[in-house]
């Protein structure tokens, strides 16, 4: 456990955990699962197996239960992702307004294929992001960008150094 967190991360984890547990009845610690996994991911960039053990212990459940949750939800990374996780919505409303072309353009520009995790980029297709009236859209490390056109996208890509 000692090498999972630095001292600073450990302090932030402990503080976050006790705040989160206070949101639930005392006998329902497991309810804090999603927020606690989110906390781990914000500290480590992903959810390593040792972290699942730690979370299980703190929430008084088993590592299997934690893993079940960590693998059910697509936003939890159980493998270390590239520096920039780029989620492109290709659902119907975005596709009608160019999302497929945008994805192909990103593949060319970034030299990667959608669905492949690299050191720098993890480009993925994702499902509807509630930007249907402001399509097409994508998220970079959860930051939302919408009403995209080529000029806007090029500008955004320049910031991904």
């Amino acid at each position: 456990m000692s090498d999972l967190f630095t001292a600073d991360e450990r302090a932030r984890f402990d503080a976050g955990l006790s705040e989160l547990l206070s949101h639930y009845p005392a006998d329902r610690k497991r309810a804090a699962m999603l927020p606690v996994l989110r906390l781990v991911q914000s500290l480590k960039g992903w959810i390593p197996p040792e972290a699942m053990k730690l979370v299980a212990e703190k929430l008084e459940t088993t590592p299997e239960r934690v893993q079940e949750v960590a693998t059910f939800y697509v936003m939890f990374h159980t493998q270390k992702p590239g520096k920039y996780v780029i989620d492109v919505c290709t659902n119907l409303s975005c596709s009608l307004r160019g999302a497929e072309g945008m994805l192909a353009y990103l593949e060319r520009r970034l030299g990667t294929k959608a669905g492949t995790n690299g050191d720098k980029y993890f480009l993925r297709e994702t499902e509807c992001l509630a930007s249907c009236g402001t399509a097409p859209c994508l998220q970079v490390n959860e930051d939302h960008h919408e009403n995209l056109d080529k000029a806007k996208l090029d500008k955004l890509l320049e910031t991904l150094t």
Binding site: S95, R97, E100, G101, M102, A104, Y105, D149
Partner: peptide, 10 residues
Amino acid sequence: KPWGHYGDFA
């Protein structure tokens, strides 16, 4: 062809 008459990502 890829969809999207409104996009300009050619």
